[in-house]
Computed example of a mutant assay.
Amino acid sequence: MKWWKVLGVAGFVGVAATGAVIARSERRRRTYTPDEIRTRLHTRITEAHESTPATTRS
């Protein structure tokens, strides 16, 4: 009976830790302003276009 309690507590701690990690990343994501998000997106698109080889059409 004791092992079931330990297993239950370990499962609860795992779920709580996962929730804390998700909440932290969500807070970090929400701190960006729309202009910052737009700038970061444009930068990523530019980097993606520069890193892919250009293809020519026949």
Results as ranks from 00 to 15, higher is better:
Thr46Ile: 08
Ala54Val: 11
Asp35His: 11
Gly8Gln: 01
His49Pro: 00
Ala23Phe: 08
Glu50His: 14
Ala16Gln: 03
Val13Gln: 02
Val9Ile: 05
Glu50Ser: 04
Gly19Cys: 12
Thr46Ser: 04
Thr52Glu: 07
Ser58Cys: 11
Val21Gln: 11
Met1Val: 06
Val15Glu: 04
Glu36Gly: 15
Thr55Pro: 02
Val6Ile: 01
Trp3Glu: 10
Arg57Val: 14
Phe12Gly: 08
Thr39Phe: 13
Leu7Ile: 00
Val15Pro: 02
Gly11Cys: 05
Val21Phe: 13
Thr43Gly: 05
Met1Pro: 02
Ser51Thr: 06
Thr18His: 09
Ala48Thr: 03
Thr55Ile: 11
Thr31Pro: 01
Val21His: 09
Ala17Met: 11
Ser51Val: 05
Gly11Tyr: 06
Val15Tyr: 07
Glu50Gln: 13
Arg38Leu: 14
Val9His: 02
Arg24Glu: 05
Ile22Lys: 14
His49Tyr: 08
Gly11Lys: 00
Ile45Gly: 02
Arg30Val: 12
Ile45Ser: 03
Glu47Arg: 02
Lys2Phe: 08
Thr52Lys: 06
His42Glu: 03
Arg30Gln: 14
Arg40Tyr: 12
Ala48Leu: 07
Thr33Arg: 14
Arg28Ala: 15
Ala16Gly: 10
Arg57Trp: 09
Thr43Cys: 06
Lys5Pro: 00
Ala10Lys: 02
Glu50Pro: 00
Ser58Asn: 07
Ser51Met: 05
Trp3Leu: 02
Thr33Ile: 13
Thr31Lys: 04
Ile37Ser: 13
Ser25Phe: 05
Thr56Phe: 06
His42Tyr: 07
Pro34Leu: 10
Thr39Arg: 04
Trp4Phe: 01
Ala17Trp: 12
Ser58Gly: 13
Arg24Tyr: 10
His49Glu: 05
Thr46Leu: 08
Thr43Ser: 09
Leu41Val: 07
Arg30Ile: 08
Arg28Tyr: 12
Thr33Phe: 10
Val21Lys: 03
Pro34Glu: 14
Thr43Pro: 01
Trp3Tyr: 03
Arg29Met: 13
Ile45Leu: 02
Gly19Met: 10
Ile37Phe: 05
Thr18Leu: 09
Ala16Lys: 00
Leu7Ser: 01
